[in-house]
């Protein structure tokens, strides 16, 4: 039976989210709150509105459609994002596509149709589908049904997760491989950076490793946030078996999304230099952990 879930983006021809050509399905909702998140639209489970003021033609249709009258006399959009229910009435009348919905409820049958359109690309590249987010593991029923259907159709599955869920979720989902984020080893720092303790995250990572699950570990390198964690990470990762460990440089491509979603940005974070990244990779490799730059 089809299971309903909430997603916000389907990106085909992904070449960095697992082996081969992949379709990455981004789930909406996350149980971490990383300071550097470049997909801020993925954090809230609620449907949201994205506003691109450059596209607005000031027709006023959204004002009339919305029960909260979110356009004032000057023509500037004032959105009460707390009251917004994501009903879609305003986006439906915004032909200029200045207001667009972020997050759509879909069911597993419908999503499978989308996934299977690129099956030939998967087959010819040893690729497949990657479920990402947000945190896709917090929609375990939806996710496990998708993984099961993909398996039936011969589509390889990867789950991109931060791992902050009970181990039973991993048992339920049982994807072909995992792309596992490691943000920090120190629990206090972890909580400071992403809002939660990392005990469960590290335990799950170890259990996946011990179970011999195919796994790529991905370490975001965020200057002045987790760059001091490299030695601790190296020590931890020496006890982990992974097919590949990648260092992902922080980038600022997601910054514009904060404004369009009406989300306040934290302090600006700089992007790492090549030298910093090379130094980190060298450290890992010198301490017995094979890490590459993405």
């Amino acid at each position: 039976m089809a299971v309903i879930g909430r997603v916000f983006n389907i990106q085909r021809f992904s070449t960095h989210d697992g082996p081969g050509i992949r379709t990455t399905v981004f789930f909406k909702g996350c149980n971490l709150h990383c300071k550097w998140c470049h997909n801020p639209e993925s954090i809230s489970m609620k449907p949201q509105l994205e506003l691109n003021t450059d596209l607005c033609i000031g027709c006023g249709a959204c004002f009339h459609a919305c029960p909260f009258h979110m356009i004032d006399e000057s023509g500037a959009h004032i959105i009460d994002r707390y009251k917004c229910t994501g009903c879609g009435k305003c986006t439906d009348t915004c032909y200029a596509k200045a207001l667009t919905p972020v997050g759509k409820d879909t069911d597993t049958d419908e999503l499978m149709k989308d996934i299977l359109t690129d099956k030939m690309y998967f087959d010819l590249s040893n690729g497949g589908v990657t479920f990402s987010g947000g945190e896709c593991m917090i929609q375990p029923d939806f996710l496990s049904e998708l993984v099961a259907q993909c398996r039936k159709e011969g589509v390889h599955t990867a789950v991109d997760t931060a791992g902050n869920v009970p181990w039973s979720y991993f048992e339920k989902v049982d994807a072909d491989m995992y792309l596992y984020d490691l943000k920090a080893v120190d629990p206090t720092l972890h909580k400071k950076l992403v809002g939660v303790d990392n005990k469960l995250i590290l335990e799950n990572l170890k259990r996946l490793s011990d179970a011999g699950k195919r796994m790529w570990i991905r370490i975001p390198y965020v200057p002045d946030c987790n760059d001091g964690e490299i030695p601790a990470m190296a020590e931890f990762l020496r006890g982990i078996t992974a097919e590949k460990i990648e260092l992902l440089p922080y980038h600022r491509l997601g910054e514009g999304k904060y404004d369009s979603l009406g989300i306040e940005r934290g302090d600006a974070i700089r992007t790492p230099t090549d030298e910093e990244l090379d130094r980190a990779v060298e450290y890992f490799n010198a301490h017995g952990v094979n890490v590459i730059r993405q």
Binding site: F8, N9, I10, R12, F13, S14, T100, K104, D114, D118
Partner: peptide, 14 residues
């Protein structure tokens, strides 16, 4: 390509 499905070379190729 709008909405859920963002642009990809494979979308155009298909």
């Amino acid at each position: 390509a709008q909405g859920l499905n963002t642009f990809s070379p494979s979308l155009k190729a298909t």
